[in-house]
Simulated scan of single mutants.
Amino acid sequence: MLKGKQRSYLKGLANKMKPIAQIGKNGITESFVSQLDDMLESKELVKVNILETSLLETKEAANELARLTNSEFVQAIGNKFVLYREAKEEPTIELPR
């Protein structure tokens, strides 16, 4: 569970990022979850864009993907959201305590 200071730190890092994954009309599929899992392992912090063709709500999709990938929901703004999970091997993001 992220603390407020940690969440704020991750929001600051995510602010400069561009979305590297998209959810389209097919919604949340097994292959998308697998790809997102791999991205979280390599990058730790991932911004996802939900296309207008998808009928998903941003926070609902973010919470579902956080559950499926065992990651932390950081924030949702408009049709974008950010997830975080510390890498098992060689973490690169050091969270404040």
Rank of each mutant, 00 (worst) to 15 (best):
M1Q: 09
L2V: 12
K3D: 09
K3N: 13
G4E: 12
K5Q: 13
K5I: 15
R7V: 09
R7I: 13
S8Q: 10
S8Y: 03
Y9E: 12
L10S: 05
L10Y: 06
G12T: 10
L13M: 09
L13K: 14
A14P: 04
N15L: 08
M17E: 02
K18M: 06
K18R: 13
P19Y: 05
P19H: 01
I20K: 10
Q22A: 11
Q22W: 04
I23T: 03
G24K: 00
G24V: 01
K25R: 13
K25G: 03
K25I: 14
N26P: 00
N26R: 09
G27Y: 04
G27F: 08
I28W: 02
T29Q: 10
T29C: 08
T29K: 01
E30P: 01
S31I: 08
S31Y: 05
F32N: 03
F32Y: 10
F32K: 02
V33R: 08
S34V: 02
S34N: 07
Q35T: 09
Q35A: 02
Q35V: 14
Q35P: 00
L36G: 03
D37T: 15
D38Q: 04
D38Y: 08
D38R: 06
D38T: 05
M39R: 05
M39F: 15
E41C: 09
S42A: 12
S42K: 15
S42L: 14
S42H: 07
K43Q: 13
K43A: 14
K43E: 08
V46W: 00
V46P: 10
V46E: 03
V46Q: 04
V48M: 00
V48S: 00
V48Y: 00
N49W: 11
I50S: 05
I50E: 08
I50C: 08
L51D: 06
L51M: 12
S54Y: 04
L55S: 09
L55C: 04
L55M: 10
L56E: 01
E57W: 06
E57H: 08
E57F: 12
E57D: 15
T58F: 01
T58D: 02
E60Y: 03
E60G: 08
E60N: 11
A61Y: 06
A61V: 09
A62V: 02
A62R: 02
A62C: 07
N63H: 15
E64D: 14
E64S: 05
L65T: 06
L65F: 14
L65K: 02
R67F: 14
T69K: 13
T69D: 05
N70E: 14
N70C: 06
N70R: 11
N70V: 10
S71L: 05
E72D: 11
F73S: 14
V74C: 07
Q75P: 00
I77W: 02
G78W: 09
N79V: 07
N79G: 05
N79E: 06
K80S: 01
K80V: 00
F81P: 02
F81W: 11
V82N: 04
V82Y: 07
L83F: 07
R85V: 08
E86M: 10
A87E: 07
A87N: 04
K88I: 13
K88D: 11
E89T: 15
E89I: 15
E89C: 13
P91H: 08
T92M: 14
T92R: 15
T92W: 06
I93G: 07
I93A: 12
L95S: 12
P96W: 05
P96G: 15
P96K: 12
R97T: 03
